[in-house]
């Protein structure tokens, strides 16, 4: 259980240098990304141990959901299916990834209890593990979007490339949320269930299965919903000819705010996590 630590380890409770230590933690965590990546792959492999199609179960169930809901809601909302189905497929797949990310973030540190209390590792490693795991998982469903596009014969234009910055911003948020929720939920065990409930509510409050136009005038307030802006960064370029400038600005503002809060929290409480888990 030897750790590659700096030859000199000095810590003085009177001069904690919290910022320096937090930054060192982040640096060390990113430098050992291979560990986080390996652990994430093991997590997925173990989750579907013995299953024949493994993570593609998620893909299959999403496909069934998209087909079922697509037919039903196209009727209910009186929408053209060729137009609605690509929208719904993109929405649901991105939403599922986003919501899985948030809910797994709540346990990313408390589940690593055994390691945190035995090995000196950067906490960033555990957060990265959660981000990588969710990215890998999502990668199994994302191609489904292309299948739906092909079936409906609806292809986005060059603006689809905006998906790439969208996914990058999502990844930044994923890391922030892992660190932030991971720490809070390690300390207060009631936050996890609250987050799960909040996500449930957010699913209905956010235009995932319904289209923003249905709100009429109210649609202009939608950027106030952070989930909408996150979703729109990926969905917009794919099905709506690129998100509006407003959603991008709002998304970046939310990203900055979340990152700032997560970092402040990390700097202040990082050293306490070993006592919390």
């Amino acid at each position: 259980m030897q750790q590659a630590v700096l030859p000199i380890y000095r810590i003085d409770a009177n001069r904690p240098d919290r910022t320096g230590r937090a930054m060192a933690d982040l640096r060390a965590g990113f430098a050992s990304w291979r560990l986080a990546w390996t652990l994430a792959r093991l997590d997925l492999r173990n989750r579907y141990r013995g299953s024949v199609i493994g993570p593609f179960w998620v893909t299959l169930s999403t496909a069934a959901l998209v087909a079922g809901m697509g037919l039903l809601y196209a009727q209910l909302f009186r929408l053209d299916i060729a137009n609605y189905l690509p929208y719904l497929a993109t929405s649901l797949i991105v939403w599922n990834a986003l919501s899985a990310m948030v809910s797994e973030a709540t346990t990313c540190l408390s589940n690593a209890e055994g390691v945190i209390r035995q090995l000196r590792l950067p906490l960033t490693t555990h957060a990265l593990r959660c981000v990588f795991r969710n990215a890998l998982n999502a990668a199994h469903s994302l191609p489904l979007i292309l299948v739906v596009f092909a079936l409906m014969g609806q292809w986005p234009g060059a603006e689809a490339l905006l998906v790439i910055p969208g996914l990058v911003v999502l990844a930044v948020n994923a890391l922030s949320v892992s660190l932030f929720l991971g720490m809070i939920c390690a300390r207060f065990r009631d936050i996890g269930p609250i987050v799960a409930n909040a996500m449930q509510l957010a699913f209905f409050m956010t235009p995932v299965i319904w289209k923003p136009e249905l709100l009429g005038e109210g649609a202009k307030w939608l950027p106030l919903n952070p989930f909408y802006t996150m979703l729109e960064m990926v969905r917009g370029p794919l099905v709506e000819g690129g998100g509006t400038l407003m959603t991008w600005v709002a998304a970046l503002l939310y990203t900055g705010a979340l990152g700032g809060i997560a970092l402040a929290f990390f700097v202040r409480f990082r050293s306490r996590v070993a006592f919390w888990v």
Binding site: M1, Q2, Q3, V5, P7, I8, Y9, R10, I11, D12, A13, N14, P16, L42, R45, N46, R49, G114, V115, I116, R117, Q118, L119, R120, S271, A274, F275
Partner: peptide, 30 residues
């Protein structure tokens, strides 16, 4: 080993640390 950070006082460890605290930590049984 640097796992718990002290709430008071000062600690300095010079040299590469190897710790044999829990043999099974970090093992994956699958």
């Amino acid at each position: 080993a640097g796992i718990y950070e002290p709430v008071a006082g000062e600690l300095m460890v010079e040299g590469e640390i190897g710790s044999l605290i829990d043999p099974a930590a970090g093992m994956d049984s699958d």
